[in-house]
Write a protein that binds this DNA or RNA. Structure first.
Lengths: 246, 246
DNA sequence: CTAAAAAACTGGTCAGACCAGTAGTGATAA
DNA sequence: TTATCACTACTGGTCTGACCAGTTTTTTAG
């Protein structure tokens, strides 16, 4: 076949998308064999290199597995949703979680500091509401309000870059950590400590005391980081025990 | 080259792993260009198809982006910051530059602080070299060494997250600002002020004084930000005059 | 009928060619 | 002088056809 087709994106990618769709539509079932590369070539009227790159893409995304001499097969397990690339990258280093929190600590501190300086009435209302919701909530929903609280503070900094970066870090952390922050709430003293931190941050912002808010935010993130670090080491059995004993 | 190497897994995958590791180790920074496919071919002594499949794998995992005619680039840790409609919205406003520097200020401070604590002999050597190169250089190349200096410090923090975020911010700043930092050097008093800052940062790190280094870095970034802000307002005619009068 | 050998698959790699965008260079025209 | 445009030398994208290295099937020799 001649070599034309300017194509949108790339042929290889469009092939990958086709196969992906077939898998998604259950036309190809897990464990099932995918037509051989040479078959796909002639059927789709493209070169083998294009097909190979397409398969390599699906391979990287763990949608298929490939064995030399045998063929390519639809992967058995698909469940894991897309997780952030950079995290997968760091997954080996357990230090990564610490690194993430180290940076986050600094930026949360800055966000709280700026929020104390710049928050409008509207911002203060939102922060107050988030704070109260958080105090009253329990269990799983607590994590949600926790997040909302921090986000409200970030937005009150009125620095879009800061907001954006913090949101990115949040996402990385979410994907990274197995023991969700919500688990920490199951330990009584931990919970009380975090409440205390939150109140300090809140007070600092409301009263327009930047340094106080910053300091509290840094202490808070630092504390959470340390707790998570401990759990990472001991495994999550501690949490389970605590939950069971409750 | 002949085609041997039964290889474990596959050549393509091992190439991908190599590049992945370089990204993880911050040897390749976000936004940075990856050697062209043909360069990688000859350097690694493999065929282009193998290289292409490796890049396709990294592409699928969103660790790199590829553009026809341009090349492949390490992806940003801050997802689609440039495309983010949220940030794009603010990009016109000159305030955005201020926002960028506000965050950068904080992170450069942290980087300097950590560098003063964690820098190895190798790090110190690199930082020293960058510092001396910068002091001796003039004109356009100065901006290059300036960047290298800050980058060396960031890497000495040994926090990959921090390194990547700073690199991403650098990218955003580059895109945002018309008046390059290098222009600032054309003003004598500005130049001297920056030299002074750089020396303070350098001394703080070399002597292992985190707080001093942090403070100097924050002051430095703050100063640069203010200067740029001024020029943005007045237009760049001031710079031109200064250059002409020299 | 069985077991070993051969043939016909499979994916993995290599080589060289050409197409299609991009960017820098230099010559030409205004 | 400056601005424009064609040209050239990059970049990635695709195609072709060959050979290597495993796996499976078929054939063949015992």
């Amino acid at each position: 076949m001649s070599q034309y087709t300017p194509a949108s994106g790339s042929i290889a990618h469009s092939i990958a998308s086709k196969i992906e769709k077939m898998i998604a539509d259950s036309e190809l079932l897990p464990g099932q064999k995918i037509p051989s590369e040479r078959q796909l070539c002639s059927r789709l009227n493209v070169s083998r290199s294009a097909v190979r790159e397409a398969l390599r893409e699906l391979q990287a995304r763990q949608l298929i597995t490939t064995e030399q001499g045998k063929g390519s097969f639809v992967a058995e397990i698909i469940p894991q949703a897309k997780q952030s690339p950079f995290l997968q990258l760091y997954f080996d280093h357990s230090r990564t979680l610490y690194d993430l929190y180290e940076v986050r600590q600094q930026l949360e501190g800055q966000a709280a500091e700026l929020a104390a300086q710049r928050a409008t009435q509207k911002d203060l209302y939102r922060i107050s509401k988030a704070f109260e919701d958080m105090e009253q909530s329990q269990g799983r929903s607590r994590a949600h309000y926790d997040k909302a609280f921090h986000q409200a503070i970030a937005e009150a900094s009125h620095n879009p870059v800061l907001i954006h970066v913090l949101a990115s870090l949040e996402e990385l952390i979410m994907h990274s950590v197995q023991a969700s922050v919500s688990n920490l709430y199951h330990l009584k003293d931990t919970r009380e400590q975090m409440n205390k931190h939150h109140r300090q941050i809140y007070q600092g912002i409301i009263k327009g005391n930047p340094k106080s808010a910053q300091k509290a935010a840094i202490a808070h993130v630092s504390f959470v980081s340390n707790c998570l670090q401990k759990f990472e080491q001991q495994g999550s059995n501690v949490i389970r025990d605590a939950v069971l004993n409750k």
